[in-house]
Design a protein around this nucleic acid. Structure first.
Length: 278
RNA sequence: GGGGAUGUGGUGAAAUGGUAUCACAUUAGUCUCCAAAACUAAUUUUCCAGGUUCAAGUCCUGGCAUCCCUG
């Protein structure tokens, strides 16, 4: 198995295609945004859809988690191997990769959307108290940042309250340690920024705004999981007249640069990744 | 030339004369089922020179800068 990850806008796709040729491989996407149908131009789906797995799996208003990803991808990997070919995973969503390679916690539970909806409007303080009451140790085990993070608090509450536990066999994942595990990154950020600016311009030229219009016309909303994506958020604000075009572009570029930084911060902890500068 | 307005972190703003705040950006980080998400921490400010006052971003005088109106 081959895995190709790293920062956004580093040319992962191009390298993936080369590797596929060389190693008789089949590509699998692990980019959480390209999982979504209709999000094409802005998420940069530049491989023909018939030549890569896991593009267009769910609709923009559907929930899709790293757990769902692992569930979807495992049989595909097995299938490719069975046919004597090399699975090549390419993408930038490290959380998906992390869960695929190193597994989940044993006593986890599926999402409780009703509970999430109910708790979403609550204050951080309320959530903290609620979790402490349910199980103080769980709260204490969280780090400072997470103790103040409503989403993480809600997730902990959800797990603590849940009766059904999802047990996953960790070994399933660890078995497939990749032979090649490459991460692509920029050596300096100003270069990354330049590339991102250029890419945003290109995507606008290729019809990014029309893409958003089309998706909104289909009835999808700003708050749908798929549209909570860099680029879409900014263009929607532009279309709603909350942003000028310049502001939207500026924000788009900025958010993407910040995202690239966070990707690196997260991936750096994985000592198995062999880094390559572009 | 005349009249008016405004000067506060990198940017946009807030502060009855009483500890200079906020948002965004920047830098570092967190992450075991929303992750292109959500969150944490750190850094950086009152145009200049005087004056009044226990105390000035705030009031007074002068200068400089920018913007608007008008010859």
């Amino acid at each position: 198995m081959i895995i190709l990850t790293g920062q956004t806008a580093t040319g992962k796709t191009k390298l993936a295609l080369e590797l596929a040729k060389k190693h008789n491989g089949e590509l699998i996407n692990f980019d959480s945004r390209q999982i979504y149908k209709y999000l094409d131009i802005i998420t940069g789906k530049d491989i023909p859809k018939t030549k890569i797995w896991l593009y267009d799996v769910v609709l923009p208003n559907e929930y899709f988690s790293s757990f769902d990803f692992v569930k979807h991808v495992t049989p595909i990997i097995e299938d490719i191997k069975k046919r004597g070919k090399t699975p090549i995973l390419v993408g930038g969503t490290y959380l998906y990769l992390k869960h695929l390679l190193y597994g989940f916690d044993e006593n986890n539970s599926p999402p409780d959307f009703k509970l999430r909806e109910k708790l979403n409007s609550k204050s951080v303080n309320y959530l903290q108290k609620m979790l402490i009451k349910l199980n103080k140790k769980v709260f204490d085990d969280l780090n400072h940042s997470d103790q103040l993070n409503p989403r993480r608090l809600i997730r902990r509450i959800e797990i603590t309250k849940s009766k059904t536990k999802t047990v996953l066999n960790k070994t399933v994942f660890i078995k497939s340690v990749p032979e090649i595990f490459i991460g692509l990154k920029y050596k300096d950020k100003s270069e990354l920024r330049q590339v991102i600016i250029k890419r945003v311009e290109e995507r606008l030229k290729n019809g990014a705004i029309d893409e958003v219009r089309k998706i909104l016309k289909m009835g999808y909303k700003e708050t749908d999981p798929g549209l909570k994506t860099i680029g879409y958020q900014q263009i929607i604000k532009y279309l709603n007249k909350k942003f000028t075009k310049e502001k939207a572009i500026d924000d788009w570029v900025n958010k993407e640069v910040q995202y690239a930084k966070r990707q690196l911060t997260f991936m750096k902890n994985d000592k198995n990744i062999k880094w390559r500068e572009v």
